[in-house]
Design a protein around this nucleic acid. Structure first.
Length: 378
DNA sequence: AATGCTTACAACCGCAACGTG
DNA sequence: CCACGTTGCGGTTGTAAGCAT
């Protein structure tokens, strides 16, 4: 309040940028760096507000931006990280080199969110929307849900706070190093660009937090009550090496759909699970509720998903190959410990929710972990 | 060909955090 | 500690392109 808006000055242009404006902005920044964004437009001879210039630069003109279709690996990463971080687009963007938070946000809103919704997955919570159908005891389920989500959220925030602090320190020292060695030509390069891809190491932070706080729970003492989402994770996290778990059939290394096909569907249908690279540890236990349950066509034919088929299910999930498989009423269970009845109703209602919930998050984290341990994808 | 609808994405807006004097 | 300016972030909107009727 009281602060003067930067963009409502008379005479300042709004709307799409012209090539001439882009050229001016680009030329100015290449020569001088952006310096103060507020002062930039005048100096660069642009009839724009500084904010608009900054946005144009960071989202479009910056040389280190990769444009074009998202690869399947990128899609996967976004979904996994969104499950962990929510709408923290800038945090997600740090794990997708050369992609801007705005681009990721747009892609999520126009593609991924819809896809998940279509499959009966709540894109906010990454849980099936019809959980009430999965367990008869709706009330206790709700309580469990709230409790578990609170647990999750609290731990997540704690971990994030810690790692934000660490990454900030790391980034700062890195920037200082770089600035010391070479005078950056583009002084406006944000720290996150200079920082290593894994500046934000979610899983390690997570492991630190839960590994120390909940050892008792993760000792396998038979306590099945809403354990830590990562209670089964190894605290070392080093044994997992799941490089190339997913490959594009006949695909190129970039993983993008530049083979002449266009459109999501065609692209997505190239997804295939590369079985020989699967290791038990890398995908262990992804028999979670939402993913397993999608796969009505799974090989057992009874909705009983073999443990460790996460990626396969994940692929199916994303591809939405079967129209009937999207029926939320048929989802649920899929846990190897809680096989479904032929009608798709889990007969172990008292534990199915907790188990599924636990597995869902466990396996997202496992995947993030393995993806973070892989060499850079791009 | 015209019209309306949908989709994709660039850009805007406002808020909050951060930095500085 | 406070006030103010700057920057970053996430939600939302505007609009062009594509598609269906």
């Amino acid at each position: 309040m009281g602060r003067s808006p930067c963009c409502d000055k008379v005479g300042l242009k709004k709307g799409p940028w012209t090539p001439e404006e882009d050229q001016k902005l680009l030329a100015y920044i290449e020569e001088h760096g952006h310096g103060s964004w507020r002062a930039l437009p005048t100096k660069a001879g642009l009839q724009r507000c500084g904010k608009s210039c900054r946005l144009r630069w960071t989202n479009y003109l910056r040389p280190d931006i990769k444009r074009g279709k998202f690869s399947l690996q990128e899609e996967q990463t976004i979904i996994q990280l969104h499950a962990l971080l929510g709408n923290r687009w800038s945090a997600i963007a740090t794990h997708l080199p050369k992609r801007t938070d705005n681009e990721i946000k747009n892609y999520w809103n126009t593609h991924l969110k819809k896809r998940l919704t279509k499959m009966g997955i709540d894109p906010v919570s990454h849980k099936p929307k019809n959980e009430t159908l999965l367990c008869n005891d709706g009330q206790s389920k709700s309580v469990a849900n709230l409790s578990h989500m609170a647990q999750w959220e609290s731990a997540r925030l704690e971990a994030e706070a810690r790692l934000a602090k660490q990454s900030k320190l790391r980034c700062t020292s890195l920037v200082e190093k770089q600035m010391g060695s070479t005078e950056s030509s583009s002084t406006g390069t944000p720290a996150k660009v200079l920082a290593p891809n894994r500046c934000l190491d979610i899983l390690n932070a997570w492991n630190r937090v839960w590994g120390t706080k909940h050892n008792d729970v993760s000792e396998g003492n038979g306590n099945e009550d809403l354990q830590s989402p990562t209670s089964t994770l190894s605290t070392t996290g080093n044994e997992e090496s799941s490089t190339n778990l997913i490959e594009l059939v006949g695909g190129n290394s970039s993983g993008s759909c530049d083979n002449g096909t266009t459109g999501d569907q065609e692209c997505e249908e190239e997804w295939e699970y590369k079985d020989e690279n699967r290791t038990e540890s890398s995908i262990h236990g992804f028999n979670g509720i939402s993913l397993a349950s999608i796969d009505n066509n799974n090989k057992n034919g009874n909705g009983h998903m073999p443990s460790g088929n996460f990626l396969e299910s994940f692929t199916d999930l994303l591809l939405s190959k079967s129209g009937t498989s999207n029926n939320p009423n048929t989802q649920g269970g899929g846990n190897s410990n809680t096989p479904l009845e032929p009608n798709g109703v889990n007969n172990n209602n008292n534990t199915c929710y907790e188990e599924n919930n636990k597995n869902y998050w466990n396996n997202i984290l496992n995947l993030v972990n393995s993806s973070l341990q892989d060499p850079p994808l791009f």
